[in-house]
Write a protein that binds this DNA or RNA. Structure first.
Lengths: 215, 215
DNA sequence: CTGAAAACTTGGAGTCGTTGCAAACTTTCA
DNA sequence: TGAAAGTTTGCAACGACTCCAAGTTTTCAG
């Protein structure tokens, strides 16, 4: 069924990717604010309107793939193993990502350049926060569903806040360390330490929340 | 010395206040995005440039007084009593604010209208997040200073994340409840319950962090 | 194969936030 | 009282973003 893809679909995907690539290149080179949409359009050999056709706002040209990170925590929680609580699963997955030096947590060589572009552009930072908020809301409903909590129970939201705090703290920490061009292995090692510290700070109730019964 | 205020200073303060009032009124009436800066200027009987003279961006016309909330948590922590930890002080102050139905935590009749304006305008929401981030950074340095932590110690940042999480969770919860036009007393009472739940979720280390020695 | 329908692209005009500049005006103060 | 300093204003301009009315390209039924 993958072969059944019309010319139109393929072209659209290509155009979109091409615009995104050109834009990302320009942003990395000169910063987010210094690049204008008109420039991107010219460099990508399309009209300004076509750019807006694919990307609702300038930020989306750089921060595509935000959907992946939005439900990442929810996926971790839903995939928790027998005997594991929500926090256990999140910590295990995050540790695995750190150990595996996964790009999903920012552990790859180019991440420093990305971070710089983001931190320098106020618009990109707020888009990032918006994504975080969506992730938090997503996780809240996941936890509520998994524990069959009552609608007015505030605990799912509170625990979601804690787990999402661990995630964003980890990402932020890795980001600032990577910007200092440190060795990836070293950053990864210290990130594990950070996760340990964060885990120690969690309350017992949070640590045990939404435990899946052992089989 | 308060009497020693030149005409110039007084006029400036008045103009600023007047513009802010006019703008706030228009925003409450028709929403943030529907009101243009040119309109505000016309309604306030000044030029557009004068508006920008006092307020760097449109959001500042509505979210003035952000500085107060930025160092609020730091103030709470610095003012902790003998025997109290940072978390103790924050919780005590927040409970006092809730019980006293203080506007600083959103417990007053007009808050619902404010919230609606904010939640409807993406620009205002991200400004709010920016303020939260500043508050978090502020609290981090305060905790680091108060505990004389080493520069590379991540714990102050982690604990700051927890305390600031309590604060923002409380504010967010009150906000959504107030939008439903519920009775303020009732919202306040339930907010105390929320604070209790949040406190129970905190880890022992967080609860005890930066305890001031009993006298 | 063909021709119209549907989808995509484009140029152009316009709105709004925001900045820079220089002229005009007001307050201060010697 | 007059120059210095600070404030206000109009004007021009830039860039993100939207709307609209042509074109162009791709699809697909007949």
């Amino acid at each position: 069924m993958a072969t059944t893809e019309g010319l139109r679909e393929r072209k659209k995907r290509q155009t979109r990717q091409h615009i995104s690539d050109v834009a990302t290149g320009l942003f990395l080179e000169r910063g987010f604010d210094a690049v204008t949409i008109a420039e991107i359009a010219r460099a990508a050999d399309v009209s300004v309107n076509t750019v807006y056709n694919y990307f609702p706002a300038k930020e989306d040209l750089f921060l595509d793939r935000g959907e992946d990170v939005i439900d990442r925590l929810s996926r971790y929680v839903r995939g928790r193993r027998p005997g594991e609580s929500a926090a256990d699963a999140v910590l295990r997955e995050l540790r695995a990502a750190v150990v595996g030096q996964s790009p999903t947590v920012g552990l790859f060589a180019g991440w420093a350049d990305f971070m710089r572009v983001i931190t320098d552009a106020h618009a990109l930072r707020s888009r990032l926060w918006a994504i975080q908020q969506e992730a938090l809301a997503d996780l809240t409903t996941t936890l509520a569903r998994e524990t069959a909590a009552r609608d007015d129970d505030p605990v799912p939201a509170l625990v979601a806040g804690q787990l999402s705090w661990i995630h964003s703290t980890l990402m932020a920490w890795i980001g600032t360390e990577m910007v200092r061009w440190r060795d990836i292995g070293e950053v990864a090692r210290e990130a594990l330490g950070l996760l340990d510290e964060a885990e120690e700070l969690l309350g017992d109730k949070v640590r045990a929340y939404a435990r899946r019964p052992a089989e």
